[in-house]
């Protein structure tokens, strides 16, 4: 079974943990307990293939963000989460995204942009259009999710797995490398 290292990034209090726990356990965490680092494992079936997801729920609050570089190096796919009711959290993703690209040093990092707390649309501060525009700019899919009501939660993770599969097909890794070598020679 192939393993996927997914990393959930975003500012503090946007609901990274809630999203992750909702995905892993189908349970909503209603208390806020700043995460330092948590990892979860879950086996899912995506497109008929069994996958083992190792989800790293990271610290959003600044005191703990020093580890970010490390997460970024180790992760294969990234979920960038902001809260639609706090536009600052949306703006802060720009920096994270930049850091991600620098760390990965490639233009095609599997990333999903996620606007969480869409059940609180009456307090919305980030319009869908704005987020969509950003997602288009980054060339990533965009989802609005609700960890509370479990909207689009599975979709986000599954889509990320698909992106990793697409970018890095499981079985052809070696042959690809070989062909590249040949071309270089």
């Amino acid at each position: 079974m192939r393993e996927y290292k997914l990393v959930v990034l975003g500012s503090g209090g946007v609901g990274k943990s809630a999203l992750t726990v909702q995905f892993v356990q189908s349970m909503f965490v209603d208390r806020y307990d700043p995460t330092i680092e948590d990892s979860y494992r879950k086996q899912v079936e995506v497109d008929g293939l069994q996958c083992m997801l190792e989800i790293l729920d990271t610290a959003g609050t600044e005191q703990f963000t020093a580890m970010r570089d490390l997460y970024m190096k180790n992760g294969q796919g990234f979920i960038l989460v902001f809260s639609i009711i706090a536009s600052a959290t949306f703006d802060e993703l720009t920096e994270i995204h930049g850091q991600l690209l620098r760390t990965k040093d490639t233009r095609t990092v599997p990333i999903v942009l996620v606007g969480n707390k869409c059940d609180m649309a009456n307090e919305r501060n980030v319009s869908q259009e704005r987020a969509k525009a950003q997602a288009d700019k980054w060339n990533t899919p965009f989802y609005e999710t609700s960890a509370r009501t479990r909207i689009n939660v599975d979709e986000v993770f599954h889509d990320l797995v698909r992106m990793i599969n697409l970018q890095n097909p499981a079985k052809h890794d070696k042959s690809k490398k070989n062909t590249v070598k040949c071309v270089l020679l």
């Binding site: 726990v21 349970m27 307990d33 948590d38």
Partner: peptide, 8 residues
């Protein structure tokens, strides 16, 4: 508890 809290 949820996973996170019970982990905690």
């Amino acid at each position: 508890l949820d996973v996170k809290s019970s982990k905690r």
